[in-house]
Amino acid sequence: MKYIRFSHERDTFYGQVEGETIHVLDRSYLEEGCQRTGQIIPLAGVRLLAPVEPSKIVCIGLNYAKHIVELGHTRHDEPVIFLKPSTALIGPEDVIDHPAMSQQVEYEAELVVVMGKTAKNISVAQAQDYIFGYTCGNDVTARDLQKKDGQWTRCKGFDTFCPIGPWIVPDLEHNNLNIRSLLNGDVKQSSNTRNLLNSVPELISYISQIMTLNPGDLIMTGTPEGVGPMKAGDVITIEIEGIGKLENKVG
């Protein structure tokens, strides 16, 4: 089962995808009592949107060993966390804007966790019960500004710098998934989520000790090695085994 948020005939809906058809839902799949309306429409006839509207996007930096090496950093004792604003969020096929103040905008393929329940001060053992599902994400980064600023708010927070989608897949074995990025069809990143330094349950538990995680909130779990620049006209594709492909063009 795949869960989507989509636009159809000028309205926004939530749905469950089975094959090439959508079963329209009466409300968000994150709401209790959500049911199918009985309306069925073809998947090909809709525009997919970012599958959730989170209250916050929590991101993890430096969570793959080889990525730490390529950036010239050292591993931290605890997870490195930062936030992206909700205005950075876009969906599949939406355009990533290249800001004029940056000369080096880069892609970062990431597994994204979608929270299903409110989580505060939960244990690692409890964390799995709070997950709704998983999707693909691209932690777009203005690398030159990251080096200039030292902290990551500006370089990670531009509008359109958080593409996610195309849908949410629940009940996925997240700890052994192939993850890739392709720039104009050429493979740039290729790794597996088993290489995460901090696991998904560890991240959820850790973040929940700091801030309350709400249903629909996103956790971007970090990127593997192979990050690199994009320019206007490029097409960046994020592929994660068991989920699918997230594709965006750079404007």
Rank of each mutant, 00 (worst) to 15 (best):
M1W: 11
M1T: 12
I4Y: 07
R10K: 13
D11Q: 13
T12L: 08
V17F: 13
T21D: 15
H23S: 15
H23Y: 14
V24I: 15
L25M: 15
D26N: 15
S28K: 10
E32Y: 04
G33N: 08
Q35V: 07
G38S: 07
Q39C: 09
I40C: 13
I41V: 13
L43G: 07
R47F: 15
L49P: 09
P54K: 01
I57W: 05
C59D: 00
Y64E: 12
Y64Q: 10
A65H: 11
K66G: 14
V69R: 12
V69C: 14
L71Q: 14
L71R: 14
H76A: 14
D77H: 12
P79D: 10
V80P: 07
V80H: 06
I81D: 11
P85F: 00
P85S: 03
T87W: 05
T87M: 06
A88Q: 01
L89Y: 01
G91R: 00
D94S: 06
V95P: 05
H98T: 01
P99Y: 01
Q103C: 05
Q103T: 14
E106A: 04
Y107C: 04
E110L: 08
E110F: 05
V112T: 04
V113T: 06
V113D: 06
G116I: 05
T118F: 03
T118E: 13
T118I: 12
K120Q: 15
V124N: 14
A125N: 14
Q126D: 15
I131N: 06
G133K: 12
T135C: 11
V140F: 01
V140E: 08
V140N: 00
A142F: 02
R143L: 04
D144Q: 02
L145V: 01
D149W: 03
G150S: 04
W152I: 05
R154K: 15
C155H: 05
G157D: 07
G157Q: 04
G157W: 02
D159G: 10
D159W: 10
T160K: 10
F161H: 10
C162H: 02
I164L: 08
I164M: 03
P166C: 13
P166R: 09
I168A: 03
V169K: 10
L172S: 00
L172T: 01
H174I: 08
I179F: 01
L183W: 03
K188V: 07
R194E: 14
N195G: 15
N195K: 10
L196V: 06
L197M: 13
N198S: 09
N198G: 12
I204Y: 01
S205R: 00
S205Q: 00
Y206I: 00
Y206W: 01
I207A: 01
T212A: 03
N214F: 08
P215E: 10
G216F: 04
D217K: 02
L218C: 11
I219T: 12
M220G: 13
M220W: 09
T221Y: 12
T221F: 06
P224L: 08
P224T: 13
E225S: 13
P229N: 15
P229S: 15
M230D: 11
T237N: 12
T237S: 07
I238G: 00
G242E: 03
K245G: 07
K245Q: 03
L246H: 11
N248E: 08
N248Y: 07
N248T: 07
